[in-house]
Amino acid sequence: MEPLPYLKTIELKRDLIDSFEVYPFSIPAVKELDFIEFDKAVTIFVGENGSGKSTLLEAIAVSLGFNAEGGTKNFNFGTRSTHSDLHSYLRLSKSFKRYRDGFFLRAESFYNVATNIDELDEDPAPAPFIKDSYGGKSLHQQSHGESFLALMLKRFGGNGLYLLDEPEAALSPTRQLAVLSRMHQLIKNQSQFIIATHSPILMAYPGAKIYQIDKTGIYPVKYEDTEHYGVTKAFLNNPGPMLRELFS
């Protein structure tokens, strides 16, 4: 039996939007958005660069109370205000069941999260170091990929809602497989994941609900029907013809 999703649905308050010709309402992920259901333990947004999947994930995270640059709900730093006001136009439906842990991972701003942790740990007040929850070592003293794994393996504790924006950015294929394994452990411990990704490895999580985002809107798609799967499979099965076409 799958764990009950903490976030059940989101709905765009279309009647409050003055124009769908201005950002962020002009991007494909929003322009055709009406209602999205999160009825699986893992929901994945896929789409080309610029389709708006990260903007949508960010808006969901901010609506839930997470910092726009990432981290837990306790992080309130801001290096630059670049997030859209899309979160103000989302209506969220949540389960009666409350999650005890949560994190919003943004690959592009995780450096800022790591910096904030180091800054907070410099406070002389007698308290446990925040970095102890991430393996006891500054995230800046690890490679980008190692720090991502430390987050997954050490910080994520289960009974959680985890939003991940392109977590594969710093991970080798082997490490992406390790993330899949850790996701499975956390899901068995009543966790829910919402992920924006280009990785056909992460998309392969069994039973995941995949939403394709393109110029026509947002719609469910089978794993084998994603462009990411098709292109990767075609290339790895026979790279020669594709390379010759690209280089001709």
Rank of each mutant, 00 (worst) to 15 (best):
F103D: 07
F103A: 06
F104T: 02
F104H: 01
R106Y: 01
A107E: 02
E108L: 12
Y111F: 13
Y111C: 04
N112F: 14
N112W: 14
N112A: 14
V113M: 06
V113N: 06
T115L: 14
T115V: 14
D118N: 13
E119F: 10
E122D: 11
P124I: 06
P126A: 07
P128Y: 00
F129M: 10
F129I: 01
S133D: 14
G135D: 02
G136A: 02
L139D: 04
L139N: 04
Q142A: 13
S143I: 06
H144L: 14
G145P: 12
E146W: 00
F148M: 15
L149R: 04
L149C: 02
L151R: 12
L153K: 15
L153E: 15
R155L: 09
R155M: 12
F156T: 12
F156R: 12
G157V: 08
N159K: 11
G160N: 07
G160R: 10
L161R: 06
L161M: 09
L163V: 12
D165V: 01
P167M: 04
P167A: 04
P167E: 07
E168M: 05
E168D: 09
E168Q: 08
A169Q: 10
P173C: 03
T174R: 13
R175M: 13
R175A: 13
A178Q: 13
V179G: 03
L180G: 00
L180P: 00
L180Q: 00
L180C: 00
R182I: 08
M183Y: 01
H184L: 10
H184E: 13
Q185A: 10
Q185K: 13
L186T: 03
K188F: 02
S191L: 08
F193E: 02
F193W: 02
I194H: 05
I195R: 06
H198Q: 13
P200N: 10
I201H: 08
L202M: 10
P206D: 00
P206L: 00
K209P: 02
K209Y: 03
K209S: 09
I210H: 04
I213C: 07
D214Q: 12
K215W: 03
G217H: 07
G217R: 10
I218N: 11
I218T: 13
Y219Q: 11
Y219L: 05
V221E: 00
V221Y: 01
V221S: 02
K222R: 15
K222G: 12
Y223L: 15
E224C: 07
E224H: 13
D225R: 09
T226L: 11
T226K: 12
